[in-house]
């Protein structure tokens, strides 16, 4: 999925100066883009705009060359996975297992194939043995891994990870780095992070800096 931002401007309130101001960027459909920027520089805001949770005040967002204005957040999210800075808000179901399956159950698309894929994801993200646990009762790192597994269950083509290492220990961080490097061979990943270890370990990345509402290539 190719994401193109053109002249993107956004402010939360009319009276306040805009958080993003005439921002231009292209995020390729393959490879890693690392987005840095001070606290409050608008990284999370940018992710919300790409997913359609927030609407831009001016400018446009194109997904694979198509204007995204008419695409609902749900339609965009089927192709772009967005891991929240706070994954608590992304977990709903009473058990880990159901957390992965409920969107498919609701849309009546839970096939045997899907079930097998979900099992695999549980194993891949180190959640085996926790299938019947309550998601919000998991540790911070486990919640983040579960949220990530939930995103991947839909077969997304692009991932936006907002501070993905904030709750991870060294071992889980290594696993995540491995996963990102691997996933980015065929898909695009936008990582928003201040984590130096993560930044150093990501392969073939573009580094971007958000400052004063604009993006700079570092």
């Amino acid at each position: 999925m190719l994401i193109e931002l053109e002249n993107l401007t956004f402010s939360y309130q009319k009276r306040l100066p805009p958080v993003l101001c005439g921002l231009n960027a292209v995020f390729e459909s393959r490879g890693i883009a690392l987005l840095t920027g001070a606290n409050g520089s608008g990284k999370t805001t940018l992710a919300n705009l790409i997913l359609g949770i927030l609407k831009p005040c001016a400018g446009s967002i194109k997904l694979d060359g198509k204007n995204a204005v008419k695409m609902s957040p749900g339609a965009r999210a089927n192709r772009i996975g967005y891991l929240f800075q706070n994954p608590d808000l992304q977990l709903f179901a009473p058990t880990v297992e159901e957390e992965l399956s409920f969107p498919f159950e609701l849309s009546k698309t839970l096939t045997e194939e899907k079930k097998a894929l979900l099992k695999e994801l549980i194993k891949k993200f180190g959640l085996s043995g926790m299938e019947t646990r309550f998601p919000l009762g998991l540790s911070g790192g486990e919640k983040q891994r579960l949220a990530l597994a939930a995103l991947l269950s839909k077969g997304v083509e692009y991932l936006i990870l907002d501070e993905p290492t904030s709750a991870l220990d060294a071992g889980s961080k290594e696993d995540l780095i491995h996963f990102i490097n691997d996933f980015s061979k065929n898909n695009g990943v936008l990582v928003m992070s201040h984590d130096e270890d993560l930044a150093d370990a990501l392969e073939d990345k573009r580094v971007l800096r958000l400052e004063g509402g604009r993006l700079y290539e570092a």
């Binding site: 997913l51 949770i53 609902s72 957040p73 749900g74 339609a75 999210a77 089927n78 967005y82 929240f84 808000l89 992304q90 709903f92 969107p103 609701l106 849309s107 939930a150 839909k154």
Partner: peptide, 24 residues
């Protein structure tokens, strides 16, 4: 925020039947 987050799971709330809506 949770309603938005559930939309991000690829669920179109408007298109669901009443019963699934209640479940949601």
């Amino acid at each position: 925020n949770r309603i938005k987050a559930i939309a991000l799971r690829g669920i179109d709330i408007k298109k669901l039947s009443l019963w699934t809506k209640l479940k949601l």
